[in-house]
Lab assay of single mutants.
Amino acid sequence: MLDDRARMEAAKKEKVEQILAEFQLQEEDLKKVMRRMQKEMDRGLRLETHEEASVKMLPTYVRSTPEGSEVGDFLSLDLGGTNFRVMLVKVGEGEEGQWSVKTKHQMYSIPEDAMTGTAEMLFDYISECISDFLDKHQMKHKKLPLGFTFSFPVRHEDIDKGILLNWTKGFKASGAEGNNVVGLLRDAIKRRGDFEMDVVAMVNDTVATMISCYYEDHQCEVGMIVGTGCNACYMEEMQNVELVEGDEGRMCVNTEWGAFGDSGELDEFLLEYDRLVDESSANPGQQLYEKLIGGKYMGELVRLVLLRLVDENLLFHGEASEQLRTRGAFETRFVSQVESDTGDRKQIYNILSTLGLRPSTTDCDIVRRACESVSTRAAHMCSAGLAGVINRMRESRSEDVMRITVGVDGSVYKLHPSFKERFHASVRRLTPSCEITFIESEEGSGRGAALVSAVACKKACMLGQ
């Protein structure tokens, strides 16, 4: 009897593995994704193909990295998701002549009506938060230079001027797309009239992360975010950046690689679950690469896999709870928690219980395998993109072996128990001629924006502006 049951459990697990095998990517698959990513990057950089390229390769006008001589107080704003952060950054000489960066910050959550109302409502709310922060720190009387981390696709015309191309991540505030974001912020500050600010720089969160990590390690020339969304930036040779005049030196390019796949480059790798996630998203047909990796989508992918296993009578005796059938019910943090389970399955059992399920031991094991399959594919897909960037940098610099540091931020990278190990191992397999160091950014977005502002202020002083 026991043997029969054991055989049935083994057969069930084997069927589960057959279904989950769809998520496995072979090294040849990853090399294919990497080569296609490089081709799209090239198209994004070139003037004649930029418009139709899915990977936009947006110039950021960040050319210099901090040298350690900029000092002063800077205000930093960070808008990239449902939370908005205001930070005071003091850049100065530390002990023994070292450079020191001290920060104080406060988080504000953005109400739904500000995210989806008008641009005026959104930026009025942001300036209200700045006003509140300055009151708390008794700094209303000071006109501070301000660095703005704005983590949406922007076409820069200068370091302090950028046109919002399109909202992502659930934002829909009308009247912002096609307009200068810094102008919208300046107008809102003017409307309030109770404080003055000098907006000197606007950067993407990947750029802010790279600059913040450069402060720790001067070989950091790539910034990457794996959180709600997924994106990367890197220092490109100016001669390859056709959208900006000049051939000397390097400029940081914001790849906006989340949109890779929007022209069909990933079609052969998309599964039924991916198509369902895409169809029910706020932007169907867009940001397809990001939807395979980002935390906004990972939990939902797992939920759809679990429903398939229920329908195949391989999980929960073929019956799903009402909660499990509800879109968004299986949160991405559950994926991390399930994979963090120590082996007694308590954590998995508790999560499934909150979803109205009474799982068996085998159910718990199957749910864990589903989570591992989805998150491992995410790590491997992400590795193909980064390997594409790094191999490109090595080739354009004609280096036999390139040493490089990548600064990384984002909740999936930082909080998932195995993502970074799987990701690092896969990147290294795909970049055999590179020695890569990964560092995690601390308060990256805010500190990085302030350091970019410090560079901009120093330049302005040198130019006598």
Rank of each mutant, 00 (worst) to 15 (best):
C230N: 13
S280Q: 15
V367D: 02
A370E: 00
R327K: 15
L292W: 03
R403H: 05
G448P: 06
Y349I: 07
S212H: 14
R345Q: 15
F148Y: 01
M381N: 01
Y234D: 01
E27W: 04
E221L: 05
D73Q: 03
D78R: 11
G356Y: 04
D198L: 03
R422A: 12
Y61R: 05
N350D: 04
W257E: 01
R303F: 01
E256L: 09
C364E: 11
L304N: 10
C220V: 11
I189F: 13
G356H: 06
V427N: 01
H416V: 09
N283L: 12
R250I: 04
E236Q: 00
R46G: 13
I189T: 06
D198G: 09
E95T: 07
P111L: 03
E421R: 06
K102R: 08
S127R: 03
F148S: 05
G175M: 07
T255Q: 08
I159G: 15
V154F: 08
R327P: 10
D278Q: 02
D267S: 05
D124V: 04
I110Y: 05
E265F: 09
H317W: 09
C364P: 01
I126A: 05
A259N: 14
M381P: 01
R429M: 14
E440I: 10
R63D: 08
S396T: 10
V367S: 01
F419Q: 01
I19G: 01
A454I: 05
V91S: 13
K32H: 05
K12A: 14
K346E: 11
T255S: 11
S69H: 13
I404W: 03
R85F: 09
V181Y: 10
E248H: 10
R191E: 10
V33K: 00
M107R: 13
E93M: 11
A173I: 07
V389R: 01
F84P: 05
E268N: 07
T332L: 06
Q38N: 06
T361M: 07
R428A: 09
G183L: 10
V55C: 12
Y108G: 02
L271D: 00
T431R: 00
N231H: 15
R377E: 00
G464L: 06
C371R: 00
P111H: 13
T49I: 04
E442R: 04
T342G: 12
G446S: 15
F152W: 15
L79S: 05
R392T: 12
Y234A: 00
F152C: 14
Q219M: 03
E120M: 03
D198S: 14
D365P: 00
V55N: 01
E322V: 11
I126N: 01
L352D: 00
T49N: 05
I225F: 11
A370W: 00
A320I: 12
V374E: 01
E256T: 09
E339A: 04
S418Y: 03
G246E: 02
L315I: 11
L47K: 14
E216G: 09
R377C: 00
R397W: 06
L164K: 15
L165P: 12
S212L: 01
L47I: 09
M197D: 09
K12G: 15
D267K: 04
T65Q: 13
T149G: 08
V335R: 00
K458M: 06
C457G: 13
V181A: 11
E372Q: 04
A119C: 13
R358V: 12
V452H: 10
V277S: 05
G92N: 14
N166H: 15
D29S: 11
T362A: 14
I225Y: 10
F84G: 07
Y413I: 11
Q323C: 13
G193Y: 01
R327V: 14
G183Y: 10
T206K: 01
G444L: 10
L271V: 05
V427Q: 03
M238C: 05
M87F: 07
N179D: 12
G80P: 02
R429L: 14
R303M: 01
R46S: 12
L184N: 11
Q239V: 10
V16N: 02
E399I: 11
V89F: 07
G162R: 10
E300F: 00
K12I: 06
D198A: 07
E95A: 09
L134N: 07
D409C: 10
R394S: 04
S383Q: 00
D187R: 09
R63V: 09
H50N: 03
D160E: 12
R333M: 12
N231F: 02
I348W: 02
Q323Y: 04
V62E: 03
M57H: 02
T342V: 11
Q286G: 10
R5M: 11
R191L: 05
S54L: 07
E40S: 06
V200R: 07
M393A: 04
N240T: 06
R428W: 08
V338G: 04
L270D: 01
A6N: 15
S151M: 05
E279D: 15
D344S: 06
A119F: 13
E395H: 08
D311Y: 01
D311L: 05
S280N: 15
H137K: 12
D409G: 15
L324M: 03
G229C: 05
L415F: 06
E9G: 15
M393L: 11
R377F: 00
L47F: 12
Q323I: 10
V89Y: 04
R191I: 02
R447Y: 10
F84T: 08
R43W: 02
K458S: 10
A370M: 02
G295N: 11
H416K: 00
D278T: 01
L292V: 15
H218P: 10
I439C: 06
I159S: 15
M57V: 02
R186G: 10
Y289V: 01
E312V: 06
D267V: 06
L288E: 05
L75T: 02
T228I: 14
Q287C: 08
C252N: 00
K56G: 11
F334Y: 04
L243C: 09
F152S: 15
S263Q: 11
I189D: 05
T209K: 02
I439V: 13
A21L: 06
M251Q: 05
D278R: 00
L79P: 00
V241D: 04
E268P: 14
E96Q: 12
A454N: 14
I19V: 14
K169V: 13
F123G: 10
V408W: 02
M381A: 06
W257S: 01
I130C: 07
I293A: 08
E14R: 05
R63Y: 12
R308E: 07
Q106W: 04
P153H: 06
R325C: 10
G162W: 04
T118N: 10
L386S: 02
A379H: 00
H416Y: 12
A173Y: 09
W257V: 01
M107T: 10
T376P: 00
